[in-house]
Amino acid sequence: MKLYFILISGSLKSRMQYKMNFIFSMVSYGMIMAVDFIMLAAILRRFDDVKGWDLYEVGLLYSISSIAISLYRVIGAEVHDFERYMVNGEFDSLLIRPVSPLFLLLTRNIDLSRIGGAIQGLIIIAISVAGLMKTGKATLLLIAYLPVAVLTGLIICFAVGVLTAALAFWTEKIKDFQTFTLYAPFTAANYPMNIYPGLLKIIFFTVIPVAFMNYVPVMYLLQKGGEWWYLITPAAVAGVFLTFSLIMWHIGIKHYHSTGS
């Protein structure tokens, strides 16, 4: 853990060498996020409910999903940007160290400019919880569970990210895949799963299990159905999925081709 902080502070110090660029990207992401938020609010105001989920309930789903992916983009910036390491053979430099390459990758950069998305999510969570309190739907259990949901969401997102990155060991380029494995599922998870047709729903419950980070537990917590174990399965699914993605990652490393000298 100490090494993590030494390496991270090294990376941050490197970024700070280009202060203007850092500030600029922070501001621009903040603005993109704000626009995004306004769009969402505008859309939700037009509908009273989405298949039995009202504005505040959808707000919960939305914010859990968006905080999860934003935090992943902050701490997993280089996992997300992994194809660079394949294309120019930079992965070599991670393999010559007596430390896990995935650990080194995580310390290469944390993208603080993405933190705006998490802050936006927190604001929406606060608004949603406040709204649900008025109708008496926000129980103590719900509020206590939110951090767990965000954490499982982050783990699932990280696992999907690592799995997609591991693809790069075979395909080199992964930017196109990320649309399907990360952006689309996590945007889809902003809304309740019951709005999607069968096949998509199956995908979100199995291949890319985003349904478990917010839809499954929140459904139970809002008394829309389900059993108490709806609160346990997400953590189990996240754990299994993370293990699977780490195994694929290690198999991928064995296939690493490097580049010509």
């Binding site: 090294g10 110090k13 490197s14 060498q17 280009y18 930079e90 070599d92 000298s261």
Partner: peptide, 10 residues
């Protein structure tokens, strides 16, 4: 020789 292992900006 072709690629430094040092932290470029530090």
């Amino acid at each position: 020789g072709q690629r430094t292992q040092l932290w470029w900006d530090l």
